[in-house]
Design a protein around this nucleic acid. Sequence first.
DNA 1: CTGAAAGCGCTTACAG
DNA 2: CTGAAAGCGCTTACAG
Lengths: 340, 340
Amino acid sequence: MGVTIKDIAKETGFSVATVSRVLSNKVGFFSQETAAIVNDAAVKLGYKKNMAATELVTQKSSIIAVIINSTKTNFSDSIIAGIQKKADETSKRVIILYAGDHDFSSQQRALTTALERPLMGILLLSVDLFAENLQLLKAANVPFRFISISFQDPELTYVASDDWQIGYLATKYLLKKGHKRIGLAGVDIESSAHTGKLRLDGYKHALAENNIIPQKDWIQTGNYSYESGLQAMEKYGSQKNVSAIITGSDLVGIGLLNQATKMNLSIPSDLSLVTIDGTYLCKIVQPQLTSITQNFYKMGYLGAEYLITNHKQNAFTDIKISERGSVQKTASNNVKNKKD
Amino acid sequence: MGVTIKDIAKETGFSVATVSRVLSNKVGFFSQETAAIVNDAAVKLGYKKNMAATELVTQKSSIIAVIINSTKTNFSDSIIAGIQKKADETSKRVIILYAGDHDFSSQQRALTTALERPLMGILLLSVDLFAENLQLLKAANVPFRFISISFQDPELTYVASDDWQIGYLATKYLLKKGHKRIGLAGVDIESSAHTGKLRLDGYKHALAENNIIPQKDWIQTGNYSYESGLQAMEKYGSQKNVSAIITGSDLVGIGLLNQATKMNLSIPSDLSLVTIDGTYLCKIVQPQLTSITQNFYKMGYLGAEYLITNHKQNAFTDIKISERGSVQKTASNNVKNKKD
DNA sequence: CTGAAAGCGCTTACAG
DNA sequence: CTGAAAGCGCTTACAG
């Protein structure tokens, strides 16, 4: 159907071997004149390389497969931008595969689609793999790395934020603002990734440093979704057991914000909010949300780099506090409203 | 490296031909017993088909490449979900390629990555292709179809909403609510896709039916972005030349909403808003935005279907009005505030 | 610097 | 129902 190197060989009188060498730029194996003739012919005939053939014979590929959840992880765009950047710099190709919304067969489909062809490696963006699918991945003998979530399992390398530090930092920040009754909402502590658990630990550690023992109802777990935010706020209730809340994601933060408004609590005067992620969503709500901001772009960039260079270590990317409008300093009125 | 059909042939004593037939399920070409033996061996050896080889020999592929902008098109998830659904139903594979943010070389990279291998077809999600890249695509002799934007060029088939109807419907809706000074903000009328122009036409048509001639400053074009919304609202100013505004996308609507708040205008009492798209963003802002809601999931589903079945016609998916909290009925106070 | 030839892992007429 | 063989479009030792 299409134009092949054979056609170019015929057109130019060179052998397919020479044409191949020119076209895949095996420097030193051809003269400039030959190259010019072959390249001209290629353009003239509208040649396009069939990578299926190349991949078959070389048994490798310049393709990085990125597997992502189809759920609203509004930060994946930044991660992908980072991956794409590194890929461009190193002449790699990026294809993206949707793995559904924590759905076993969608995950498997994505994985299979990726593994069915030669691949440079696989990057998984906050995909919490089912055990069987993880086996599939491990067995495939293809380099892979997780991005934005971390694991205990030493076989599972990752680039992520230091989630313990995130929990710790957010809590310290609120403590410094005078808050003592600080909630944590919407983090997932059931997942096989230990992101949520780490954040919880960091949070507890910071509180402990200030001799505060969190009440049970200060911690409202969830799954990082908008709905988790709504539900958490309902649980907190309007009695204001807490004066500030750390939310597990921007969407949780917004859910909490909206539910609070519905309960006639106003942010930040009645309740302070610090959200984890710091994506554009923080800026398009009112008030804008103060966040522990993750460097998603860098995560992608570094993830791709480590995959390409076959680096084996885990890595953390930087986090920072972005002050916007959802946290208020509080002095002593903390204790006043305390119910217990 | 990996296990091949040759290994299975050796293991089972059958020829590679037979193994191939079983594994690719060429019914009628093998007995059940053979199938059982071969399949068992495949599982036992951990066989994984090398699609590069299959694609090379069959000269075709079950892969649908989806090309999307890396910008915040927050509806692409729904479209992709629709595509994925149809693909699953018909045993097709979906790979996604990011085409950057209206960037020539990113577009080209995405296109090339796709075209470099056998492909079932290409779906382009609101990608406004540069002329040269469009040539590349047309020349490639691979079926393709645009989703969510439409064109005049008969070679460019699409599945989208009827954008004229969107403009018309939104305007009619506001007219029915008593508004007479109605703005249109954030639509792009420069693009090669004529989405923006169509919406503008529909808007004008509806106004004309009510003998209203839009003032020049009622129409503030843009590029569907959050910033377009902010800027448009600044242009409208607080004098309230308009009593209601139709916004070209949810992000435009939110930008407008936030800028209006900053200008001490309250929605909907001072200004009504109808946004076009109706994604989840409409529900996470306060007040929630009334929208002309597009059926993105269906767009994806239908787009994939038409691509697969080689259907040549364009198609429109349904639109509907989703009433939330950003439009107020107005009786006569329209004219009072009018400046001119 | 160039070419002839083998081979990557599959599929599929053709013959039986 | 099964097998031998050709071939998809490339790459790359090997020989010159």
